[in-house]
Amino acid sequence: MKKLAHSISFIFIFTGIWLIFNESMAFSQILAGLFFSTVSILFTNRYLLENDYLTAYSIKPEVLFYYITYLFLQIYRSGISAIFKIIKGQDAVKIIEYETCMSNDLAICLLANAITLTPGTVTIGKNGRLLQILAFQDENTFTDITEGKTCSPYEMILRSLDS
């Protein structure tokens, strides 16, 4: 029953994308969009995926909203801090290892994506719960956490996925 609800919401999203790309809201276009999105969802679930990804990759809308808002602010903060680094010309980097306090695979991937998008850090490796992060020499967000045994702000937001 939950799977059916997921499929129906995806069908509506794909129909919206179909209508935007065809630039019309005519009744025949809505019917064609519903038909093609249903066929593509059924074909993908039946033949292309090995496991049941609809339940594994489910995320609540409000968690997604908080995540995007926080990420938006962090992207601009990182841009401002990168400007000062370019003017001063600091170029010492280091590689740190960091173990997350989450076990959900999707949550760890979203965390790695957020780390890549924000202040002076790029994720270069993921091995289970251990992330390898490339960072500037004076970056101390994640080294503080490793000693202090608390979660970073991203993990507090993504915590609700971890059930």
């Binding site: 992207i75 601009y76 990182s78 841009g79 990168a82 680094k85 370019i86 170029d91 010492a92 980097v93 890549t116 998008l117 202040p119 002076g120 850090t121 790029v122 490339l134 960072a135 500037f136």
Partner: peptide, 16 residues
Amino acid sequence: KDFYSRILISSKIETV
């Protein structure tokens, strides 16, 4: 002067 610092800076600025 180093590739790692170039990729750190350029990807951030590109996104913003």
